[in-house]
Each structure stands twice: as C-alpha cells, then as structure tokens.
Computed example of a mutant assay.
Amino acid sequence: MRDLLNAKRKEMLQFVEQLVNIDSGSYTKKGIDEIGLILKAKFEGLDFIVDVVKQKEYGNQLVIQHREAVQPHILVVAHMDTVFPEGTVLKRPFKVKGNRAFGPGVADMKASLVEIFYAILCLKQTGQTGYKHVQIILNSDEEIGSPSSSSLIAEKAARKKYALVLEPARMDGSLVTARRGCGQFKIDIIGVAAHSGIEPEKGRSAIEELAHKIIAFHQLNDRKKGISVNVGMIEGGSAVNTIASHAAGFVDVRITEKRQEDFILKQMKKICAKSNIPGTKTTLTGKMDRSPMEKTEKTTMLLETIREAGKEIGINITDTATGGGSDASFTADLGIPTVDGLGPIGGNAHSEEEYLEIPSLTERTLLLATVIQKLSKMNEKPNSD
C-alpha cells in the first residue's frame, strides 16, 4: 500500500489543488455541489454506490458505500464546506511553498476528502477487503454546526461499531479523542427610549442592562471545569443621544462534560430572568449545537487499534483534547467509539495562513487504509468447525 500511495503522491496533490480551487463556503451551495459531483464520479469509478441527499439551502450530502457492503460497521465522516466566502479562491488560490500547500480549506478539509478516496482506492487495488465494511458521509454544513446533516449522521451512525472523523490532525500530528461541547445563544433586551439630555429619567437603557448581563455571563467561566462562556458580539441603540430601547449580545458556550449542560443553561436562564434595570425585559434564545465528545473506555480501545496500525507503518500515534467542535460529537453522543483528527497534518485553519503538510497526505492516507483494514478484520466472525 505504501508503494502504491507513493507512486500516486503527485496525483493526490493535484486532486487537492482541484478541490481547493473551488469555493465551497457553507453558504456556497453551487461550489459544494460541484465538489460533491466530482467525488461522486470518483467513488462510482470504484464501484461504490453514492446516495445524494439533496438540500435546498445548503449543499447536498453524500452517503457512500460499496455495492457489496452489507451493514458496514465503520463510519467515516468528513465535510465538504469551508468557512471562506465566495470569491476567496480568486484572491488566494492553491499554492505550494516547500513542503506545505496553502489555500482556502486546504487542511480543513479538502485534503481529507482526497485522503478518504485514496485510502479506499489503495485497499481495493491491493486486494484488501476493508472497503466493504465502510460507509462514508460527506456533509456540507459542518462549519456552521451541521444544521441539515446532524440528523443524517446520527441516523447512519446508529448501528456502527466505530466512527472515524477526518478533521485535520493537530500540528504535532496528534489525533483528537475529546472535544468540548458548544452552543450559540442570543440575549435580546428591550428597554424604553428617551432623549438622553431632555428627559433621561423616562428611559430604561437596554444597553445598561446588557452590560450587567455580560458581566454575569462571564462570571460563569470556570477554567478548571472546562466551562467557557463568551459574549463575543454586541449590538444596540439607535443614536448617541438616545437611551437605547434595544440591545443584544451573542454568546458562545463551551462545556467539557455532558452533565454541565443542564447547569449552564439553568444559570443563564436565571441571569436573564432578573432585571437589574427596572422596566427592561430580557429574552434568551439559542441551544447547545453539539454535546461534548468525551474520551471513554471504548474510545481508548479504538485508539489502541489505531496506535497498532501506526506502529505497523512507522507512525507514533499521540492523542489530545481540543476546544473546537466537530461532527465527532454526534457519533460520540450515541456512545459509538469515535476518534477524530484522522486527516492529514495542517495548521492555522480558518485563516489566510491555513496550510497542509504535504508529506502527511500520503502518510495519513496509509494510516487510514491500515486502520480500516484492521477494524474490518476485527468484525469478521471466526469460522466454526
């Protein structure tokens, strides 16, 4: 498998370039669907069935498995969308500098899409059978919380034994075995407008009330417990000489353990139920989009299998926890052993300096193929006498 992938190194990088040079931000449906059609044709060329789950607002989702697959027990998840708006590719298309490739979404996660295809191709062309035990979901809206694909992932994951998620590996090559849960909320405050010079006593400042709420929300932060609450954006008021009749704050919440969700929601509701400025009214909306991905005993066992695969091909596998969210949270929440960060190594995701470590493209493809083959053998029943 190593020889085959090394022979296809240039071809793989050219495929990354092709995908990177298509704008596919979460709201750029045309670009995502174009990428989906390219991947659909590629997998169909390997005798895979590609089910296109059409979407009106977001890009279409793809569900992929081999024609001979019967109840595949390995789920592989990756996303086709990026965080970059339409037109980004024209400003900074794919480029190579030394051992690194640059471009919008090059690591998060255009390279991972290439990795999945070539891992399957590698298994098939070397006479392995692991590809028959895999179902692949390529979704289109991960970067905005997977609003249209989370239910699809949960549905397909329900009967799986393992979930492999292809977010990029950390900069040091580590895989991800724990992620914090995340949610987005909005604080809406209604006050009473009044001229701030002529009759300020008649006003009830929504901005002043929001200031109290922001301080109270930030006091919920607890680094030791892994709870983060951040009011990252605010808006309000209509004129500098008018007491604000409306204000709003936008809140990002991160938790480390699932049991923390009820606690943090109760505390936020309690804060919003009380008015520090009489005559103002506060409404809290939003939800936790993803539960935490906690490192369980089953996850540790899956990680050990991946470590064994890494050892076989000369890669030392390490793991870590991260504060960012991903689709791994959906599979982990169902109790399915899940390991994330199985994509190629990259860094500076979501920025103009995002990069891919080119040598890791073939290396991590070989790792994925080896892991799939090992997990497929673990599911085979021994022959009875």
Results as ranks from 00 to 15, higher is better:
79 H>N: 11
248 A>T: 07
365 T>H: 05
262 D>T: 13
15 F>P: 05
1 M>I: 06
177 T>A: 14
286 G>Y: 02
378 M>H: 10
33 D>L: 08
293 M>E: 06
5 L>W: 07
345 I>R: 10
265 L>T: 04
239 A>E: 10
255 I>N: 04
57 E>Q: 13
90 L>D: 15
357 E>F: 14
336 I>L: 09
274 K>S: 03
120 I>Y: 04
27 Y>P: 00
18 Q>D: 10
372 I>P: 10
366 L>N: 14
28 T>M: 00
19 L>Y: 11
28 T>R: 00
355 Y>R: 03
101 A>Y: 09
323 G>L: 06
323 G>P: 04
38 I>E: 05
31 G>T: 07
222 D>R: 06
349 A>C: 11
282 T>P: 03
131 Y>V: 04
18 Q>M: 13
373 Q>L: 01
278 P>H: 02
363 E>V: 11
97 K>W: 06
377 K>I: 03
69 A>Q: 07
64 I>R: 04
300 T>W: 00
56 K>F: 00
125 Q>I: 01
87 G>K: 06
11 E>L: 07
156 K>W: 01
135 Q>C: 03
104 P>L: 02
98 G>Y: 03
15 F>M: 14
253 V>D: 02
332 A>M: 05
85 P>N: 08
72 P>I: 10
344 P>K: 05
10 K>W: 00
138 L>F: 15
215 I>D: 00
222 D>K: 05
27 Y>K: 14
39 L>K: 11
191 G>M: 09
245 S>I: 02
196 S>A: 15
185 F>S: 09
34 E>Y: 00
172 D>C: 01
381 K>I: 14
60 N>H: 15
180 R>T: 07
57 E>G: 02
229 V>F: 00
257 E>V: 01
133 H>T: 09
77 V>E: 11
268 M>D: 11
100 R>N: 11
279 G>Q: 05
357 E>C: 06
120 I>R: 02
384 S>Q: 13
217 F>Y: 14
197 G>L: 07
286 G>A: 06
291 S>C: 00
148 S>L: 02
320 T>A: 13
190 I>A: 15
114 V>M: 07
302 L>Y: 12
24 S>Q: 09
121 L>I: 01
338 T>I: 08
22 I>K: 09
211 A>W: 01
379 N>S: 13
69 A>V: 09
233 M>V: 15
202 K>F: 03
320 T>H: 09
348 N>Q: 13
312 E>G: 02
363 E>T: 13
138 L>Y: 10
79 H>Y: 10
291 S>E: 12
215 I>C: 02
267 Q>F: 01
89 V>Y: 11
328 A>E: 03
282 T>W: 05
357 E>S: 05
68 E>T: 07
109 M>S: 08
377 K>Y: 08
10 K>L: 09
339 V>A: 03
301 M>N: 10
298 K>L: 13
9 R>I: 01
202 K>L: 13
109 M>L: 12
346 G>V: 11
323 G>R: 01
